[in-house]
Design a binder for these strands. Structure first.
Length: 288
DNA sequence: CACTTGACCTGTCCGC
DNA sequence: TGCGGACAGGTCAAGT
């Protein structure tokens, strides 16, 4: 669920909430969620200060004053939630998530010297947080092969078309989900952008025109930008760094709207399987 | 090589 | 009510 807009929203929150804080201690309850050498953790994380919160694709890069980075992937159910000292503070009802943490899904707890905490919660344990020297971050296999950031100005429609066409025999949905083609798109924004561009998700790339692909590029950027504006999509688990949900799902045209009318033509939205994923589409607007 | 499928996990929902 | 199975969907490894 956390895709580019969700991870970017978390990043913005972390930048505001934890940059400048010093780490007092880190604990974890699941090895794969925090697979780091304890000696490195005590030497390069404990006692360090958070200097920046960056993002590349769906990966968060929390930089430390020791020139190490806490590289974090939320995968499907990961959450990074900051909890300050005032648990029952203004704007937070007693039953809000931040008053319940840590809970049974808390995998890693980063305690700061001022008594506040950053909790890495992850129900399904697919996510991870690993400590690396800054210079080794770009050496990670994923970072080596991941494609360009779609919202960077250099990512033109020409480059989009060029990169998508490398996968000429695949269906367009699989290509949008391929992180080596472009970074950050997941199931929600693949479905939403294909609806916007009136393209059937199972369309094979070689059967598509440049005009169609350029339109898809345009619609994808619009969808990603709108979602960032709305704080991302909360389908099930996603919350931002303050434990709050995003509202993009209220603006979604097809995702989780199966059985409901298409806002463009009135036909009933369908759910099917494309590229091994649950796929939402309008059977009338999105023809092969 | 290009492309597809299964594994990693837990919680929820649906049918019997 | 309880129980099995399908499903959720990001990424990597293994398969065709």
């Amino acid at each position: 669920m956390p895709e580019l807009p969700e991870v970017e929203t978390v990043r913005t929150g972390l930048e505001k909430l934890i940059v400048g804080k010093s780490i007092e201690n880190i604990t974890h309850d699941w090895e794969k969620s925090f697979p780091n050498d304890p000696a490195s953790v005590s030497q390069f994380a404990i006692g360090s200060r958070i200097t920046a919160a960056k993002r590349r694709a769906k990966v968060l890069l929390i930089e430390l004053s020791s020139n190490y980075t806490l590289m974090t992937h939320l995968k499907m159910t990961g959450q990074l939630v900051y909890v300050g000292n005032e648990r029952f503070g203004a704007g937070h009802p007693n039953d809000s998530l931040i008053n319940k943490l840590p809970d049974k899904s808390t995998r890693v707890t980063i305690k700061f010297t001022d008594g506040s905490n950053l909790f890495f919660n992850d129900q399904r344990k697919f996510g991870w947080m690993k400590l690396l020297p800054n210079e080794l971050v770009s050496e990670e296999p994923f970072m080596q092969k991941v494609g360009p950031e779609p919202l960077e100005i250099e990512f033109t429609d020409k480059i989009f078309v060029q990169r998508v066409r490398r996968r000429k025999n695949s269906n367009i949905k699989a290509v949008l989900l391929d992180q080596t083609v472009l970074a950050g798109v997941g199931n929600i924004y693949a479905d939403e952008s294909l609806w916007s561009a009136k393209i059937h998700p199972a369309t094979i790339v070689k059967d598509m025109s440049d005009k169609q692909l350029k339109l898809l590029h345009h619609e994808l950027l619009a969808v990603l930008k709108l979602s960032i504006e709305k704080g991302g999509s909360t389908d099930r688990n996603y919350v931002n760094a303050e434990g709050k949900k995003g509202s993009y799902i209220d603006f979604a045209k097809v995702f989780r709207r199966e059985g409901k009318p298409c806002s463009r033509c009135g036909a009933t939205i369908e759910k099917t399987r494309v590229a091994g994923r649950g796929t939402h589409l309008c059977p009338t607007c999105q023809k092969h």
